[in-house]
């Protein structure tokens, strides 16, 4: 697999705002994401998590401010992958979905079959390889999407609440794959509003409320000594609006 020699990290957002009409999704966000343990972006619905991840992916351009990857404004997207809350399954078999990701990442044709098998094994879907992807359960689809994202061998893997609509078993399955990726050196940036999940996965927490970053802290510090009242409420499990 071709790897860019330049790193996409640190990923830096500098006074970034994001607006659509009268709605402000992100408001003057400044954030630096460096290598290391998973960064969990948390906050209530509508706090701007999705917008933040899309900016980090380079999928959208900010209305104001700049996003840089390893100091560069433009960066090839092959170093990053983004997993959506509701995975988009191509109308193909499971294996072909993964092979598609491999092809897009520049994997040569003759290596694709072997790599596909490897990736499906990694997400535990080897026996479903020939099934139509769109007939799988939500959890299985999310794992296909993960395999397809990992096919890109991303340096940064962005995940937008990938387990929001999954049951506990499926959630655990996805989390273990994410953890495996993190251990093998992929930087995980994952949005979540599930406190348990944050405790299980996070090395670092970015806490957002209404389009602003309220807190960025080491996970243990965040849970032990939240520095804002909103964060404290969120950690207690109170409703934060």
């Amino acid at each position: 697999m071709m790897r860019d020699t330049l790193s996409d990290l640190p990923l830096v957002l500098d006074r970034v705002s994001m607006r659509a009409g009268a709605t402000t999704m992100l408001d003057q966000v400044s954030l630096t994401i460096g290598p290391g343990a998973p960064t969990l972006v948390i906050g209530p619905n509508g706090s701007g998590k999705t917008s933040l991840l899309r900016l980090c992916m380079g999928l959208d351009a900010p209305s104001e401010g700049t996003v840089t990857w390893g100091g560069r404004r433009e960066s090839r997207q092959t170093r990053r992958a983004l997993l959506f809350q509701k995975p988009v399954m191509l109308r193909r078999s499971v294996a072909e979905n993964v092979a598609y990701g491999l092809a897009r990442a520049g994997c040569p044709r003759h290596r694709r079959a072997a790599r596909t098998e490897e990736l499906l094994d990694r997400v535990g879907l080897l026996e479903l390889a020939d099934r139509p992807a769109r007939r799988l359960s939500g959890g299985e689809q999310q794992r296909v999407a993960l395999a397809r994202a990992l096919a890109r061998e991303p340096e940064i893997l962005l995940l937008d609440e990938p387990t929001a609509s999954l049951d506990p078993a499926a959630t655990r399955h996805v989390e273990s794959i994410v953890q495996m990726a993190a251990h093998s050196g992929t930087k995980i940036v994952m949005a979540s509003h599930d406190l348990g999940q944050v405790r299980r996965l996070a090395g670092e927490v970015v806490f957002m409320v209404r389009g602003r970053v309220r807190e960025q802290a080491n996970a243990r510090d965040f849970f032990d000594r939240p520095s804002t009242p909103e964060a404290a409420a969120f950690v207690r499990g109170d409703l934060v609006l």
Partner: peptide, 21 residues
């Protein structure tokens, strides 16, 4: 979103969509 995220060019999009459709 998915195709943009994986950086598929215009002709790749056409091919993918025609095949999947």
């Amino acid at each position: 979103d998915e195709l943009t995220a994986v950086g598929v060019g215009p002709w790749g999009r056409v091919a993918t969509l025609l095949w999947d459709g």
